[in-house]
């Protein structure tokens, strides 16, 4: 546990300069009736890693899709608020426009193109680029440099690779668009802890060396806070808490709700449920 609290990656609080991404009071409604986000605001600094935490159904994925404009494909709609990337309103753009501006989402559950090879998957990521073949081949080499495993599997159909390799393929595919910000949705889902560490390590690397910012939705709070500098906690479509990653990791409530740690010792399961119900956070 102490690893989580004494991470070398914990930077000083969010930079004061204008954030790269600013989400202001966004409300999202699905199918014209289901209110999912009830006014979410958050910021991601240029070159930062920000964690978006919360339980199932809290609205993490919806927040990311609201930013990347992928909601339309699921009959969702941003009905209030604004989203700005580098000072420009982006909430009415198409995903294509947004990728061209440097924001790319890696969706929950990997979503590789199963029948394409790993290399073809990566190349589709460069669709929006007008660069020469040599430039794109250069980016491909760079992705292989970060994910050496993908180089070995380059000719395999992505559908037949392991979960970890698919996650790497999905991140590598996003990198091929040369994004300045990646919206990464649950990279740890369904993966062995060792693989999760490997992938987060690469995320940290990409952030440090390529200056790619990350907005990271995770249920694996401990790992996410180890790599992020700042975190937001969502519950029921609202941000209920935010702060520097180290502060969040130290917070008693966070420890209890998301890390399963408590100062009060062990309690019976029945008590825990009761306690949780009483102590729901208020927005």
């Amino acid at each position: 546990m102490s690893r989580a609290l004494s991470s070398p990656n914990v930077a000083p609080a969010q930079a004061a300069a204008r954030p790269a991404l600013a989400v202001n009071n966004v409300e999202v409604i699905y199918d014209h009736v289901i209110l999912v986000l009830k006014g979410v605001s958050l910021e991601v600094a240029e070159g930062g890693i920000v964690a978006l935490l919360g339980a199932n159904g809290a609205g993490k994925t919806t927040t990311l899709k609201a930013i990347s404009n992928l909601l339309g494909a699921e009959r969702g709609e941003v009905t209030k608020g604004s989203i700005e990337f580098r000072g420009e309103r982006v909430d009415r753009l198409t995903p294509n426009d947004l990728v061209r501006r440097g924001v790319c989402q890696v969706m929950e559950g990997r979503h590789c193109f199963a029948h394409l090879t790993v290399e073809e998957n990566l190349l589709t990521g460069a669709f929006t680029r007008r660069d020469s073949r040599a430039d794109i081949a250069g980016s491909l080499e760079k992705v292989y440099h970060y994910f050496p495993r993908l180089k070995q599997r380059r000719a395999s159909q992505a559908g037949y690779t392991s979960g970890g390799e698919q996650q790497m393929t999905a991140i590598g595919r996003a990198l091929m668009a040369r994004p300045s910000m990646i919206l990464l949705d649950e990279p740890s889902m369904g993966l062995a802890p060792q693989i999760v560490d490997e992938i987060f390590g690469i995320v940290g690397d990409l952030n440090g060396r390529e200056r790619v910012s990350f907005l990271l939705a995770e249920q694996n709070t401990m790992v996410a806070l180890r790599y992020a500098q700042y975190g937001y906690i969502l519950e029921n479509g609202r941000v209920v808490m935010d702060g520097a990653a180290s502060e969040l990791a130290d917070n008693e409530d966070v420890k209890e709700f998301y890390l399963g740690l408590s100062t009060a010792g062990r309690r019976s399961f029945r008590d825990v449920k009761h306690y949780r119900r009483r102590k729901r956070w208020l927005a």
Binding site: S68, L70, A73, P95, N96, L98, V99, R100, C104, Q105, V106, M107, H111, C112, F113, A114, H115, L116, E120, N121, T124, G125, F127, T128, A170, R173, A174, M176, A177
Partner: peptide
């Protein structure tokens, strides 16, 4: 071919 495999993912890479 990418679109044929997965619409959403195709959208997400632009």
């Amino acid at each position: 071919r990418a679109v044929a495999d997965d619409h959403q993912a195709a959208l997400s890479v632009g």
